[in-house]
Simulated assay, not measured.
Amino acid sequence: MPPLNISAGPVELTRQLCNIPSVSGDERAIADAVEAALHVHAPHLRVVRDGDTIIARTELGRARRVAIAGHLDTVPINRNLPVRNELDAVTGEPMIWGRGTVDMKAGVAVQLALAAELSDPAVDLTWIWYDHEEVASHLSGLGRAVRNHPELFAADFAILGEPSNGTIEGGCNGTLRARVTMRGRRAHSARGWMGVNAIHRAGDLLQRLSRYEADRIVVDGLEYREGVNAVRVEGGVAGNVIPDVCVVEVNYRFAPSRTEEEAAAFIREFFDDADEVEIVDLAPGARPGLDAPLAQRFVAAVGVEPTAKFGWTDVSRFAALGIPAVNFGPGDALLAHADDERVPVAQIEFTAAALRSWLAADERPAQARA
Rank of each mutant, 00 (worst) to 15 (best):
I96C: 03
I96D: 02
G98W: 11
R99Y: 10
V102T: 01
D103V: 00
M104C: 03
M104Y: 04
M104F: 02
M104R: 03
A106F: 00
A106E: 01
V108W: 07
A109K: 12
V110P: 10
A116G: 06
E117Q: 14
E117F: 09
S119K: 08
S119G: 12
S119E: 09
S119L: 07
S119I: 05
D120Q: 07
P121A: 13
A122H: 05
A122Y: 08
D124Y: 14
D124P: 11
L125V: 07
T126P: 04
I128A: 02
W129N: 04
D131R: 06
D131M: 08
H132L: 13
E133D: 11
V135L: 03
S137G: 10
H138M: 12
L139S: 05
S140N: 03
S140F: 01
S140V: 02
G143I: 05
R144G: 11
R144A: 13
R144Q: 14
A145T: 04
A145S: 09
V146N: 05
H149T: 01
E151L: 00
E151Y: 04
L152D: 08
A154L: 06
A155M: 12
D156Y: 15
F157L: 14
A158F: 13
G161H: 09
G161K: 07
N165G: 13
T167M: 05
T167Q: 14
E169L: 13
G170T: 11
C172H: 11
G174F: 07
T175D: 10
L176F: 05
A178S: 00
R179Q: 15
T181G: 10
M182W: 08
R183L: 14
R185M: 13
A187Y: 13
H188T: 09
A190Q: 15
G192S: 15
N197H: 03
A198F: 07
A198V: 02
A198R: 05
I199P: 09
R201D: 02
A202M: 09
G203A: 06
D204P: 10
L206V: 06
Q207R: 14
Q207I: 10
Q207E: 12
